[in-house]
Simulated scan of single mutants.
Amino acid sequence: MSLRLRPTPELVATAWLKTIVGDRVATTLPKDNASWAASGFCTLVVAGGTPNLYVPLREPAVGVDCWAVNPQSQKPPWNKAAALAEAIQAACYDHPAIPQTLTLPTGYPQARVLSAYTTGEHRRINDDASSYARYSIPGLVIAWTEVPS
């Protein structure tokens, strides 16, 4: 028996964030910071949420970290990391643009995002040993459903 691929909160959050910050998002930070030093990078982790009991509506809470680095300096570029977090917050307020269908990786059905909002203000995370600037969004809630194929 072959299992059908289903969208996951991680895949949907990644795809939605890519509509805002481009290909600068993944579940882990690239080891080579030269590849994202000019633009910054976002990482995410599914932190919670409860699937609807009666209908196939998912509403995961996702933690998002916005990173920036200046390889030529030990001074973290805070404004670059904050700009990524602000772009994500602004996208949550762009209500007409939020209901959208996302294309996921090959083999997965599409997902339809119905709403997105944050559960708290992003905050600066100090004292990174690598001199990276990091802003953390404590909860990004994305309500979505699988598009029937």
Rank of each mutant, 00 (worst) to 15 (best):
S39Q: 12
Q100F: 03
L5W: 03
T145N: 09
V141P: 06
I137S: 05
A87D: 05
A47W: 09
S131K: 12
G107H: 05
V62H: 02
W67V: 04
P60F: 01
A37W: 01
G120L: 12
Y117L: 09
P30K: 06
A83T: 15
S73I: 06
E10Q: 14
E146Y: 01
W78V: 08
S115V: 08
D94Q: 14
E59F: 09
V141N: 09
T106S: 14
A91L: 03
F41Y: 12
N70L: 14
N70Q: 13
T103H: 13
I142Y: 05
D94G: 11
D23R: 07
I88L: 00
R124V: 07
G40Y: 03
A90R: 06
G120A: 10
D23H: 05
Y108P: 05
L102P: 00
A90I: 02
L17Y: 03
Y108W: 02
A83G: 12
D23T: 06
L57C: 01
T27M: 00
P138M: 10
W144S: 04
L57A: 05
T8P: 08
R124T: 07
P109G: 03
W144I: 08
D94S: 14
A116E: 05
I20Y: 00
P30F: 00
N52Y: 06
T14M: 02
V64L: 07
V25G: 02
W144F: 08
G48Y: 05
V25T: 00
V21N: 06
T27D: 00
A13N: 02
D65K: 11
R123M: 12
G63L: 15
P7H: 06
G22Q: 01
R24F: 03
V55E: 14
A82W: 01
R134I: 00
P148S: 10
E121I: 11
T28S: 11
V21H: 06
V64Y: 09
L84M: 14
S136Y: 04
G22S: 03
Q100G: 03
R24L: 12
R112V: 09
